[in-house]
Computed example of a mutant assay.
Amino acid sequence: MEYILQDIDIFDTTLADKLNNAMMTTMDAFEQGNEYNLTVSFHESLLDDYSRIYMLNIPDIDAKNNNTMEDKIHNLLSFQIQKIENIITQNGINLMAVGIQGETLEVLNMIKIQINKVESEPKKSKKNPLKVTMIIPSLTYLDDLAETAIEIILNECVIPQIVLESLGKGNDVNRKSHGESN
Score class of each variant (00 low, 15 high):
M1P: 08
M1C: 06
M1Y: 13
E2A: 12
E2P: 02
Y3G: 07
I4D: 06
Q6C: 04
I10F: 06
F11E: 00
D17G: 15
L19N: 10
N21C: 07
A22G: 13
A22V: 10
M23R: 00
M23D: 01
M23E: 05
M24G: 07
T25L: 07
F30S: 03
F30E: 05
E31N: 09
Q32V: 06
G33M: 00
G33R: 01
N34G: 02
N34A: 11
N34W: 01
N37M: 12
T39E: 09
T39Y: 13
S41R: 15
S41P: 01
H43W: 04
E44A: 03
S45A: 12
L46T: 14
L46P: 05
D49R: 06
D49N: 07
S51T: 07
R52H: 00
R52D: 03
I53P: 03
Y54V: 06
L56N: 01
N57K: 07
P59A: 08
D62K: 13
D62C: 06
D62P: 04
A63I: 10
K64C: 10
N66D: 13
M69G: 06
M69L: 15
M69I: 14
M69R: 08
M69H: 07
K72C: 01
H74G: 02
S78H: 05
F79Y: 13
I81P: 01
I81L: 07
Q82S: 14
K83I: 03
E85A: 09
I88T: 02
T89N: 13
Q90E: 15
N91E: 14
N91Y: 00
G92T: 03
I93C: 02
N94G: 12
A97D: 07
G99M: 00
G99T: 04
G102H: 01
E103R: 10
T104Q: 04
N109A: 01
K112R: 15
K112W: 06
I113T: 06
Q114T: 02
Q114Y: 00
I115S: 09
I115W: 02
V118I: 12
E121R: 12
E121C: 11
K123N: 12
K126Y: 08
K126W: 10
K127W: 00
K127T: 14
N128M: 07
V132L: 13
V132S: 09
T133S: 12
S138F: 03
L139A: 11
Y141H: 08
Y141F: 05
Y141N: 05
Y141W: 02
D144H: 04
D144E: 14
A146D: 12
A146V: 09
E147N: 15
A149D: 03
E151V: 04
E151A: 11
E151Y: 12
L154R: 08
C157E: 13
V158L: 15
I159Q: 01
I159S: 03
I162C: 11
L164T: 06
E165L: 03
S166R: 05
G168Y: 10
G168Q: 00
G170R: 09
V173D: 00
N174L: 13
N174W: 13
N174Q: 14
R175Q: 12
H178W: 12
G179P: 01
S181T: 14
S181H: 14
S181W: 13
N182C: 11
